[in-house]
Design a protein around this nucleic acid. Structure first.
Lengths: 135, 135
DNA sequence: ATCTTGTATTGACAGACGTCAATCCAACTG
DNA sequence: CAGTTGGATTGACGTCTGTCAATACAAGAT
């Protein structure tokens, strides 16, 4: 059940794929395609709340039976959203007896946070006084 | 042309909306809806590359005429994607004479990075040796 | 083995999304 | 003024996505 696609996360891809950062160099098409899958998984309110509930759980794990009743959605719908989050590599799960437990994959959120963080000390090019002051 | 919706970014919303962080507390539904709009804007390879090209520009600005030829897509399609990024509050633009210039709104990417960053020192609950070792 | 409960999968359907051709608008040019 | 060019908007079309009812599967209970 665990680990089925694991979209991104592998650094050993395009040779220079260490941490260009999205904001510092023009993202390559292949990387953009992979990254978009992860962001798309985050692009739904229900999935964001699911991820948040899973990540903020003290024990680090949540049972599906604790997630489903928090939404006014059918159980299959919740299961569907959890599947998408898992395919994006954001969470993982394991069946333990009767119940299935989910937990966050922090490496993925760390990676996203890193991609969205601009290198400290960037000039921040003075956007406030338009050069031409046109129109 | 600039500033038309500006989805998120306003901290003065739910009183305690300082920086709960998405990974530390169960996101409220309203906030999830707003946040999802931004992540959805990032959930497309073309938009990710556009944002990357805009953000990594040395001068801090890019003319649309420099963006369009980088894709094998029609000009209206690129314009459409730029509009979505702008509505998400990730970029902004201004017409200067004949050309329209786009630039990154770093406050938004900073905010996203912050939301995805887990507070340093979190236990990282030992995921590797499943308690029950079931299945 | 049968029943019951927790979770995943399937199939269907309405609405959203990405794309383009056609068109429109703004600004510069002659 | 008309003509040209950069860019946005409109309308249409096929695909993807979120949702549910129905069903299937897994594991404990009887």
């Amino acid at each position: 059940m665990s680990k089925q696609e694991l979209v991104v996360l592998d650094e050993s891809d395009d040779a220079e794929a260490c941490c260009p950062g999205l904001l510092t160099a023009p993202l390559a098409e292949g990387q953009a395609v992979e990254l978009a899958k992860v962001f798309k998984a985050l692009g739904d309110p229900v999935r964001l709340r699911l991820l948040s509930m899973i990540a903020s759980r003290s024990g680090g794990e949540v049972c599906v039976c604790d997630l489903t009743p928090a939404f006014e959605l059918s159980q299959p719908t919740i299961s569907h959203h959890l599947k998408l989050l898992r395919q994006a590599g954001l969470i993982d799960c394991e069946r333990r007896g009767t119940w299935v437990h989910y937990w966050l994959v922090p490496e993925m959120t760390d990676r996203l946070a890193g991609l969205l963080t601009r290198p400290a000390g960037e000039p921040l090019p003075e956007r406030t006084a338009p050069v031409g002051a046109a129109s």
